[in-house]
Design a protein around this nucleic acid. Sequence first.
DNA 1: AAGTGTGAAGCAGTTCACAGCA
DNA 2: TGCTGTGAACTGCTTCACACTT
Lengths: 204, 204
Amino acid sequence: MRYARIPDQTIRRLPLYLRALFLMAEQGQTEVSSKDLSEHVGVHAWQVRKDFSFFGEFGRPGVGYQVSWLTDQIKTILRLDSEKKAVLVGVGNLGAAVLSFSGFNKYNLTIIAAFDADVNKIGQTVGGVEIRDVACLDSVGELNATLAVITVPGQVAQAVVDPLVNVGIRGILNFTSCRLIVPDQIRVTNIDIGMDLASLPYYI
Amino acid sequence: MRYARIPDQTIRRLPLYLRALFLMAEQGQTEVSSKDLSEHVGVHAWQVRKDFSFFGEFGRPGVGYQVSWLTDQIKTILRLDSEKKAVLVGVGNLGAAVLSFSGFNKYNLTIIAAFDADVNKIGQTVGGVEIRDVACLDSVGELNATLAVITVPGQVAQAVVDPLVNVGIRGILNFTSCRLIVPDQIRVTNIDIGMDLASLPYYI
DNA sequence: AAGTGTGAAGCAGTTCACAGCA
DNA sequence: TGCTGTGAACTGCTTCACACTT
């Protein structure tokens, strides 16, 4: 594995390649060309090759890339080669949707705990995960989770994020439309459904 | 309003500025500087000014920008100055979450219809929207909707998208992890929760 | 004094063309 | 022949510095 300055845009495309590779593996495909892969992802073939070239030589000229080996390489680059644990806070409709989502395991991701403030929900199980009292958020420290999914109402988002940061959460997937204030070393990805839908009219 | 080549990155930041402006308006703020706005969005002040400069002169030197006027300008640029109608297909947990979401109206967006295949759900109301039979997707044509939110299981995503495109849908918010095949003039925004969570470990 | 608007410089990402390998 | 890997050219975004306005 080569060590060079990797463009941020390249990193953003890697998960897309990975998703396409999973699909190909499911269909029994063992070899893939950059052209084939590029069509699944919606970029050009040279972009695919350039992206991989930052990490080393992944393919064989005249043949292409081996699906399983390439999958492992990308997983390693993205640090998905070992299991990562996540907790979820806020089991409303959206939280329940994320808990019920079965697509995490191929990325080696597991949601190990869920939290909610509603006493009627505490103790219940959604997507195989038991719901705990959000007042016990400190207990996340013992679980060794590094990721958190925030699906609470916006007004309480910051209030649940602060204790999570204190107990060792390093990456946050934030579904609220509030900007979270976190230390520099914490990575936040924001998904704002309202904004995403609002972005469409410009392009149509 | 000036007509020039607008960088795509600038367009992507406009909804973020808009969201911050909504927040400021709620708090009764009437004037805002590029520095103030930049801090809410997480970019630099000069980036904010540069972005606006593509469209004309929005601010007053020494003072800043008027919140309400700037809001209207950005809404106009993003084509959010008139009401846009959306339909939603697939009322599972995720679909119900989107239907119950109250943040669309400030963007002039309205979800006017929802569709599902489950006969037990048809006729019920979620978030004030009645659920119809997905077999009647053709009826969307009469509703004058231009946007669609796809929250169905991945296997049937393409099957619901094809009729939607035929009846005049121009923009699609796709929550499935499948790449949709649509004509060139149709805009698709993909939100893949699994991939978004899987992108985090690299950065932490 | 405070804050905007913008030409120009600098930098990063994309695109190309082709050498090289199976 | 088919397809990869990559230096080089190109394109476009970001950053800067500062003139200008209130």
